[in-house]
Nucleic acid binder design. Sequence first.
DNA 1: CGGTTCCTTGAGGATGATCAACGAGGGTGG
DNA 2: CCACCCTCGTTGATCATCCTCAAGGAACCG
Lengths: 197, 197
Amino acid sequence: MQIDIDLLFSWGAVAKKYKKNEVIFQEDEIAHFYYQIIDGSVRMFNSNDEGKEFTQGLFCIGESFGEPPLFIDQPYPSKAICIQDSTIIKLSKDKFLKILDEYPVIQKAFLVLLANKIHSKSNTSKEIINQKPEFRILAFLNTHKRKSECNGSKVLIPYTRQEIANFTGLRVETVIRVFSKMNDCNKVDIINHKIFY
Amino acid sequence: MQIDIDLLFSWGAVAKKYKKNEVIFQEDEIAHFYYQIIDGSVRMFNSNDEGKEFTQGLFCIGESFGEPPLFIDQPYPSKAICIQDSTIIKLSKDKFLKILDEYPVIQKAFLVLLANKIHSKSNTSKEIINQKPEFRILAFLNTHKRKSECNGSKVLIPYTRQEIANFTGLRVETVIRVFSKMNDCNKVDIINHKIFY
DNA sequence: CGGTTCCTTGAGGATGATCAACGAGGGTGG
DNA sequence: CCACCCTCGTTGATCATCCTCAAGGAACCG
């Protein structure tokens, strides 16, 4: 949870409902609002000329997204859509910045949040540029396993191959073929088309 | 300039001299200091198994670098070295964080700084994943032209082809061949091996 | 049961990486 | 001043790999 919901409302925030696949903001749009998810989930991504996509981030209940452009006068670097029906709090940029001024603790929390984002983006670039498809996919699996911090055994990866392709910048077919190979080496288990890692 | 130098010194910072190519910190090292460049310049980059490199950032006089890990308990995602003889201010993590607490204005400035970094990293990922070599190189040229915000005419690109390869994740030979093609189309001018864009 | 969405496979082609060799320029020391 | 070395740029040939295109199968859901 980033900012207390009651606090947001007391500053004039409104909760808005979005349908699955509804666009929250477009790439290159100017940033006017702070967004925080009450319910549902959001995906930020770029698409190029002919539909190839790259996922910049996924955001779940309690998380905020699309904050960096609020601090600098820059447009959104990518598009955001809901991947489920969602309820999202919107607060105007001005008021958001005022909240930060008023509450140093919150400001500090955002510093940490942004630092984390930089860290994960640095890692993403590193892994994507240097490495072979299998490394990219392993990197993806590792970063997305932490969320479901678990026991020792293998864990279901709750993403389709297309989604993994979008995260890694590969093509679906390549992802599928790499997973087949990884299955042969027991690096992952594929049971009934589902991936365990 | 991030933090006033006298202020840094008054909090116990020390200025340290580094030789060209000297390592400031290693990848995966724990972050203990805030670094700000008084003179010289610094490169942060990753190298993989056999020497292929990816440049995460270049930093010049007055800029700070390697701050994100100070806010979160994470090691450095890449290595930093001086690309010239340099003088760099070091301040311990504890004192740096105290300065931020004491001076809200400075804290705000770091929020903006981090927001900018995220923005540029998002753009980098976007361009690198989706696009063909020429697009990656154009993206590089565009982001690195802004610094020398200039008149209308073409501008000398002060990077070697190897450096551009390291930024874009391509190989030198590929960079050279792409530039030749771009020269033929007048997208860049190559005069006496020097690139103008 | 029909329609999505997702997964899978194969064949073929394009392209960037790799390897090897050479040239040009600048700096240094004899 | 020349010889040498080192860095940078350049070129061609070959290779490995991922993408593309096309087709079909499996799972899921109303």
